[in-house]
């Protein structure tokens, strides 16, 4: 529950940065924050704590029975998914920063208010 609260707060901080900040770099930082918060939540989901048992990373050292495998290892699926979404987040952040740089080259400002040319 604590984890859920922390990551929701982080998501809201990121959303606040995206909505209120007018600087494009700060918007990109807000996105990175949101992305990491969701990844954090997602990765934590995999660790289901079974009482009296140690949490082991999901690497198969020796073959065990099915029941043993399912109860003692932490779930590998969220970790794989988070790795994928980190890659996606990298692409998004890189593209957003290069777009911001391109806009700066054309207009001379990172401020979203100063480049407002589209309307309607």
């Amino acid at each position: 529950m604590l984890i859920l609260g922390i990551s929701l707060v982080l998501i809201l901080i990121g959303l606040y940065a995206i909505i209120t900040k007018r600087n494009m770099i700060k918007v990109a930082v807000g996105f990175a924050l949101m992305e990491y918060a969701v990844n954090f939540l997602f990765a934590i989901i995999g660790f289901h704590k079974v009482p009296g048992m140690k949490i082991i990373p999901p690497i198969l050292m020796e073959v065990k029975t099915t029941a043993n495998v399912l109860s003692s290892y932490s779930d590998p699926v969220p970790q794989a998914l988070v790795l994928t979404s980190i890659v996606i987040g990298l692409g998004v952040t890189a593209f957003m920063l290069s777009l911001a740089l391109r806009i700066y080259n054309r207009i001379g400002s990172f401020d979203l208010d100063e480049i407002k040319r589209l309307k309607g």
């Binding site: 890189a94 290069s98 740089l101 391109r102 700066y104 080259n105 054309r106 001379g108």
Partner: peptide, 14 residues
């Protein structure tokens, strides 16, 4: 990605 971001010169002139 690094090269593209680093080699973008600030060519803007008023």
């Amino acid at each position: 990605i690094f090269v593209v971001l680093a080699s973008t010169k600030y060519i803007f002139k008023e």
